[in-house]
Nucleic acid binder design. Structure first.
Lengths: 253, 253
DNA sequence: TTGACATATATCCGTATCGCACATAAGTAA
DNA sequence: TTACTTATGTGCGATACGGATATATGTCAA
C-alpha cells in the first residue's frame, strides 16, 4: 500500500474502525464423533442459541496472542494445537456493530477436552455431524448434550463447517490427527480419530500399514490396560525423520 | 461470545480499534515462473521496498467486497479467481499504527496479468522464487523486472511465501490451475503452469493421462496456431461431472 | 488347566495408479 | 521428399492400496 493510499485511509481513521475478535473452535473426539465446546447464550442477540468462545483482540496484542489468551481464559489450556482457520467479515454478522472475527481451530485430546469442560462450566460439549461426504464441504448439524439439534449464533455454523472441512482436508496427509490423541495411543484409537473426522470407515490392515509406513509412529513396547481381549501395543507420535513429510506449517516454516 | 464478554469489549470500543486492510497477491505465470504484481514504495515506511496492492476495509463493507473492490481499483479486473489466504496481525507489522490485514490470493491468466500492468502503471511484475522444495514451506525470493532480488515492505514476504505454499498445496488436487490459463489452452501449457507452481518437472505422458482422467478437460477439436511443428490440440476447462471432484470451496459450498 | 472368544497383528493377492521408455503421428521447412 | 520437432498413444515394471484371510495373544469361564 502506498503512502497516499494509507493517508487516504488514515484520514478515514477519523471514521469508524471495525471491532476485531477471535473465535475458537475447540475440537475433540467424543464417542466416535467430532465434538466442540460451545456456550449457550442467554442475552440478545441470538438468545437460546449457542456460540463459540471468543474475545476481542487488544490494540497491542497480536492475533496469535489473542487466540492463545482466549484459549487460556476460556478453557484453561495452554498447549493445544492452534491454527488460524479463516476470517469472517460479513457486514451484518453481528447485529450490534461491525465485528470482523478471525476464527481459530484448536485441537484437544480427550483429557484436554474434559479438563476444559471442568474448568469452564459455561462450556458444553456439542457433537458435530457433517451433512456431506468427502471434502465437498457444506453445512453441518450441531447436536447438544441431549442429542437434539441446536441452533448456532451469528455465523458460527459456517465457522464450524469450515473447521471440519479444513480438518478433513488435511488429516490424511498431515499429522494433525495426533493432536487429537493422548501421548500414548493404539493404532485402533488413531484409526477411530481418522474415521470420526473423515466420516468414513477404513480397512484396518491398510490403515495400519499406511500409518506405520509414514514413519510417525514409535512403538513403545507397552500395551493398553484393562481390555478383556488381547491388548494392543501403545505407540507414541514422533515427527518424521524424513519420509513422506508433507509438513504442517505453523505459518510458512 | 457472551453478552458480558461483548459488553466488556464494547466498553473497550471507547478504546482504540485496529485498522483492517486487505492486501492482494495478484499472481500469474511469466516466463515459466510464478510472478506477482507489486508496487515500489517511495515514502515512509519502507521506502525503496516493494509492497502488495491493498486498501482499507470500509466500515460498511464486507471483506469479500473489499478484496473485490481493490482488485477492481488497482488492476481493473473483475472476474479473477479470488480466495482468502490468511490474516496477518503482528502488532508491529506496520510501524505507523496497528493494522491487521486480510491477505487474498488472486489468480490471473497471462492476458489478465498483462492487462493489469497496462491499467495501473504503478504495478510491476516480480518473479517469485521458492527457496524450498515440495510443500515444506519457507521463505521466498522476489526478483524484480531486471532480475535482481528486491526487498519487500511490511510482512509482505511472508504473505507471498504463504501464497505460493497454498497454491502448491492445492494445485495438484483442485482445479485452481485453470484460473492461471486462458479459455483455450494446450496440455503443454497446463503442464507448464503446474511445473511453475510446483517447482518440479513432470513426466509428460503421465501428466497428460492424469489430467485427462480427471474429466476436467474438454477437447475442442481446434489446434494451436503458428507453431513450426505439429500443433497441439486446444482444450477447454469444464467443471467435473462427478469423478475425482475434490471440489474447491469458495467458502464451504 | 483348558477351551471359547475377541481383538491385534501379519500375509497374500488382485487392481488401480504412476513413472518411464518407446513408438507413432502430424505439422514446418529446406 | 526428407529432416526435424513436438504432440500423441502404448506397453511395461514398480508401487500403493483395498480386501480377504490366516495367525497370535490376551481375558474369561468352566
Amino acid at each position: 500500500m502506498t503512502e497516499a493510499d494509507f493517508l487516504s485511509g488514515y484520514d478515514a481513521s477519523a471514521y469508524e474502525h471495525p471491532s476485531v475478535t477471535v473465535d475458537l473452535v475447540l475440537l475433540g473426539i467424543r464417542e466416535g464423533r467430532p465434538a466442540v465446546l460451545l456456550q449457550p447464550r442467554e442475552e440478545e442477540p441470538f438468545p437460546g442459541r449457542w456460540a463459540l468462545p471468543g474475545g476481542f483482540v487488544g490494540i497491542a496484542e497480536s492475533l496469535d496472542d489473542a487466540a492463545q489468551r482466549v484459549l487460556h481464559d476460556k478453557a484453561r489450556l495452554d498447549d493445544a494445537h492452534l491454527e488460524q482457520l479463516y476470517t469472517f467479515g460479513a457486514v451484518d454478522r453481528d447485529p450490534r456493530t461491525r465485528v470482523i472475527t478471525v476464527a481459530w481451530l484448536a485441537l484437544l485430546d480427550e483429557r484436554a477436552f474434559a479438563a476444559a469442560l471442568v474448568a469452564n462450566p459455561a462450556l458444553r460439549p456439542v457433537a458435530i455431524q457433517a451433512d456431506w461426504t468427502g471434502e465437498t464441504g457444506g453445512p453441518i448439524t450441531a447436536l447438544g448434550p441431549g442429542g437434539a439439534a441446536i441452533d448456532l449464533a451469528f455465523d458460527h455454523g459456517q465457522i464450524l463447517a469450515m473447521a471440519l472441512l479444513r480438518l478433513r482436508g488435511k488429516i490424511d496427509y498431515s499429522d494433525v490427527g495426533f493432536a487429537l490423541l493422548p501421548d500414548l495411543f493404539t493404532l485402533r484409537q488413531l484409526q477411530d480419530v481418522h474415521e470420526a473426522i473423515g466420516g468414513t470407515a477404513f480397512n484396518k490392515p491398510a490403515f495400519r500399514r499406511r500409518m506405520l509406513d509414514r514413519g510417525w509412529l514409535a512403538p513403545t513396547g507397552l500395551r493398553e490396560q484393562g481390555t478383556s481381549f488381547r491388548p494392543a501395543e501403545l505407540y507414541r507420535f514422533q515427527r518424521a525423520g524424513r519420509p513422506n513429510t508433507r509438513s504442517l506449517h505453523p505459518l510458512i516454516g
